[in-house]
């Protein structure tokens, strides 16, 4: 409970946690929360580009759709897509990191050199290129991001595994004759879990941002999806008169990314070994 108490003392982390919690709840109940569900998809040219009002708190877009409802509905694809990306990247990255970290020799070297190459190329550029090669659309964006995000996990898990591997309790297990699989899954994994969770949390925010960028550049979600990045892209031609069109989806991205990054930072402080030792 000491951990919880210390976490609650960290104001930004609590703010981050609240934002993320709100996001999850909104995403789950999006169709019920959205005030004008029907007007989120059906275009109504009579109502296009209305500024924020009591009826339309975030205004309407170029097709007369309710932006508030679209922003709320947009939480679902944003959260789902980034969850898939991060989980996918973890599935690829963690085992590779474990193997590379626990073993020596050419297997480990090969994995880490490939990882380095991936890390050296800017992720966005790599994802753009991949999404272009793949057919396009939200799924190719997700796949592209997952395929470019795993090296971050491999790096993290690799360096943590290296650290844990030299710990005495691993040596003790080896001297008892425990199998490598047992050591890796039951002992190394839980010990590297904390930084991975931190990485994943921060990665969620980052992925939402990147997905929005991909949507903005037209290689992610396709109309009429209520994607935030896509909405901002659509709003470009109406700026600066219809400021609300880009502002509210942009704000949504900003808050969510901030929330994840606050939460990630808070978690990192929590699992930081230097702080852990002073407990």
């Amino acid at each position: 409970m000491l951990i919880l108490r210390r976490f609650l003392r960290d104001v930004p982390a609590v703010i981050g946690a609240l934002i993320v919690l709100t996001l999850v709840i909104v995403a789950i109940f999006a169709p019920y929360i959205a005030p004008r569900l029907a007007e989120a998809f059906d275009s109504n040219l009579m109502m296009r580009l209305k500024p924020p009002s009591a009826d339309y708190p975030f205004g309407t877009d170029g097709l007369g759709r309710d932006i508030l409802s679209r922003v709320i509905l947009g939480t679902r694809p944003a959260l789902a897509a980034s969850l898939i990306v991060v989980l996918g990247a973890m599935v690829i990255g963690i085992p590779l990191g474990l193997i590379a970290g626990y073993r020596d020799g050419w297997v480990s070297e090969t994995i880490m050199r490939v990882t380095d190459v991936f890390l050296a190329v800017p992720q966005l550029v790599l994802a753009l290129a991949m999404a272009q090669i793949l057919s396009g659309g939200i799924w190719s964006a997700i796949l592209a991001l997952a395929l470019t995000y795993w090296p971050f996990f491999t790096r993290t898990v690799y360096s943590e595994t290296r650290r844990v591997r030299s710990a005495l309790f691993i040596d003790a297990l080896e001297s008892l004759g425990a199998s490598r699989l047992r050591i890796l899954t039951l002992h190394v994994m839980p010990n590297v879990a904390a930084p991975v969770i931190v990485r994943a949390t921060a990665g969620m925010g980052f992925t939402i941002l990147t997905l929005a960028v991909l949507g903005f550049l037209g290689v992610g979600a396709a109309p009429p999806d209520p994607d935030w990045g896509l909405t901002i892209a659509e709003s470009r031609q109406y700026l600066p008169q219809s400021w609300w069109y880009a502002t509210f989806p942009g704000l949504a991205i900003f808050i969510v990314v901030l929330g994840f990054s606050f939460l990630g930072d808070g978690l990192r402080d929590l699992v930081d070994p230097r702080l852990r030792r002073s407990r």
Partner: peptide, 13 residues
Amino acid sequence: QYVHQDPGAALDP
């Protein structure tokens, strides 16, 4: 069998 110098560290924390 072998007993480590620091048996505390030889246990998974």
